[in-house]
Write a protein that binds this DNA or RNA. Sequence first.
DNA 1: GCGTTTTTTCCTGGTT
DNA 2: CAACCAGGAAAAAACG
Length: 258
Amino acid sequence: MWSPPFISQPSWDLGVYLPSELDFEDTIVYQSPEVLLRSFNINTASSAHRSESELFDLINNDMEAISTLTDSDILSIDDNTFDTMDVAAYFSGQCTVASHIPIVDNKKTLHDNKPLPVSSNRAYKSQKKNYVLSSELCIPSKFMNIKEFHVYDNTTGRFRRPLLHEFIRLILENDEYSHIAEYIDRKRGIFKLYQPDVVADLWKQVKGRNSDNNMTYDKLARALRYYYGNGIMYPSPGRFTFRFGPKSGFGISWRPAD
DNA sequence: GCGTTTTTTCCTGGTT
DNA sequence: CAACCAGGAAAAAACG
């Protein structure tokens, strides 16, 4: 089961309005979904019948969409609107309100001829199940798939591209990539790259460094071996096989689900 | 601009 | 022999 791509979960403090984190003078953008949720005073316990993680996931995956919102868009929304509307649909440009919730006026597409992108497969599936979307919005772009790998950085309060070991972990946590890489010993954090070349190519895309060269397993493996020296990884016998060390947070701040 | 961190690139040598 | 693995060296890229 796909879980939100957060290496470190932000501390949830929903329902607390933090005006200091807002600057209505600017023409957007709220970098952090966490701040966004706070800003909107969203109470996930009572709104849109979504779990925190699911809502956060959707918000996260639609950061591109959110970034197109302006302050006036947001300020035009009544205070408690977000508690009664479907946030995911809203940020998808659909603005559909769950059936049992009263329709809120003036929730048309925020930007006339610029459909907000649907970010992830997850969000897409979720929306397809519950809402009617125009077909053009249902195409998960390569770009947005990459954004699924972005992680929330607690120290900066922003999303960023993952470090290599974080990237590896995200792949391992996502069943969609189980044919590419998988734990072979979850309890000990030992994993194997079944398709090292694919992992390397993915890594190249996710990292998005400015380089004209291709990423190869050889170079990726060298980077992983650098982790041996600092406890982020341990060597593990077998081809394409590595093991998470405590400095990666394994067994401390996280552990693979059984 | 600078210092640090994290890779990226390349390579030698040993192993499978 | 090809493909890996272990690391050294150096440089690049990103970031605070």
